[in-house]
Simulated scan of single mutants.
Amino acid sequence: MLTLGIESSCDETAVALVDGGRLLGERIASQVDVHALFGGVVPEIASREHLRVLPGLFEDLLRETGVSVDDIEAVAVARGPGLLGSLLVGVSFAKGLALSTGARLVGVNHLWAHLLAAGLERELHFPALGLLVSGGHTHTYLIRSDCEFELLGRTLDDAAGEAFDKVAKVLNFPYPGGRWIDNLASEAEPDKKMFPRAFIDNPSLDFSFSGLKTAVANHVAAHPELVMSEMADASLLEHVVGPRREQLAEMCASFNWSVADTLRIKVERALKQAGKVESLIVAGGVAANSMIRSFMTELAAKQGIELTLPGLGLCTDNGAMIAHAGERFAEAGYAHDLDLEAIPRGRVVPLDWHGPDSVCRR
């Protein structure tokens, strides 16, 4: 089923076309340079940028793939969770296309799409345990099929990706700062006692990284020499050498280890609670982190299950994952009416689509 995917949940504007599980083409516009000036995403600027670039991206995609707008059978759009103003741009664009072409409209849970993204590269084996690690969410799910997700554990405060961003901001690293922390962490061995592994001394499957973030902030306050004197870029970080670089690398490695080991502990618990699963799926922007990928690889091998990690290009927000998930849902018989709502972060994305209720449930 030829499906258009539209992604505008945060600061990436993306469109993609998928047909029969095969990616035909994708166009994406990043706002990183715009928001780097502020050290984080400014919602009003993000929504205006989506509005400015989305029509052009769509036209470019059609031209590059040779697809006519009338050929599109389903329009899938990220309807949440995310920044409300940004989501509304994508949802409104999708509704207009569906109304004008008669294509099926499918609202996609952005979090589910991340976990299904690797299906564009390989067959996914269910039931699976899914770990979503992104800037706004750190969740575990029991995934029984492409559209059967049971939430097991969720973010209580700061998500893992948010902790990375805030630690990077404290250090005056470039935005987004997670990759710079990961790069420096690779140069040192972690001090496993430097920072706490947050919210593990309990049986809960939920996540909390605010305490870890505070511990890092306190450590940096006690060692102000770690902070860049101005907003760093790649060239400035390259010129940090000697004992200062060694100290900074050790701090980054220790923080990285605390996050990765916390995720390992929680996922191991979730696997015990979920029962027999065929695979472990790890997805989201923070799934690109090298230490997290290494820890999850070791855990899957220990448990004797398949590990599914999307390629790095599918970890960050993208239109291909929305198109792929939308195609799967549409083929299962699901669709939305034009009263489809955008769902901001903090609200549960409802299962308000039309289709066989016995097949898809939360």
Rank of each mutant, 00 (worst) to 15 (best):
M1D: 04
T3D: 03
I6E: 03
I6H: 09
I6M: 12
S8A: 11
S9P: 12
A14Q: 00
L17P: 02
V18Y: 02
D19S: 01
L23E: 11
Q31W: 01
Q31V: 13
V32Y: 05
V32W: 11
A36D: 11
G39D: 04
G40L: 05
P43H: 00
A46Q: 12
E49H: 14
L51N: 15
R52A: 12
V53T: 13
P55I: 05
E59C: 01
R63S: 02
G66T: 05
S68C: 10
D70Q: 15
I72S: 02
E73V: 13
G85W: 00
G85H: 00
S92K: 11
F93N: 03
A94S: 10
K95Q: 12
G96S: 15
A98S: 14
A98M: 09
A98N: 10
T101G: 15
T101L: 15
G102D: 09
R104K: 14
L116S: 05
L116E: 08
L116W: 05
A118R: 03
L120P: 01
R122Y: 12
A128M: 01
A128Q: 02
G130K: 04
S134A: 05
Y141M: 09
I143L: 09
R144H: 06
C147W: 12
R154Q: 13
A159C: 08
G161N: 03
A163T: 11
A163R: 07
K166E: 03
A168I: 00
A168G: 08
F173Y: 07
P174I: 05
P174T: 06
G177A: 12
G178F: 06
D182L: 04
D182G: 03
L184M: 14
A188M: 10
P190S: 04
P190G: 09
F195Y: 05
P196S: 00
I200M: 04
A215I: 08
N218F: 09
H223Q: 04
H223M: 04
L226K: 12
M231T: 04
D233S: 10
E238H: 15
G242E: 09
P243C: 15
P243L: 12
A249R: 07
A249H: 13
E250N: 15
E250G: 14
A253D: 09
S254A: 13
W257K: 10
W257I: 04
V259L: 00
D261C: 12
L263P: 01
R264S: 07
K266I: 13
E268Q: 07
A270C: 11
L271T: 10
E278Y: 09
G284A: 04
G284F: 06
G285A: 10
S290C: 01
R293N: 13
S294M: 01
F295S: 13
K302H: 02
I305W: 01
L312N: 13
C315F: 12
A320H: 06
A320L: 13
I322N: 09
F329N: 07
D337N: 10
D337W: 08
E341M: 01
A342I: 00
I343K: 00
I343T: 08
P344C: 08
V348F: 03
V349M: 10
S358W: 15
S358M: 13
V359C: 02
R362E: 08
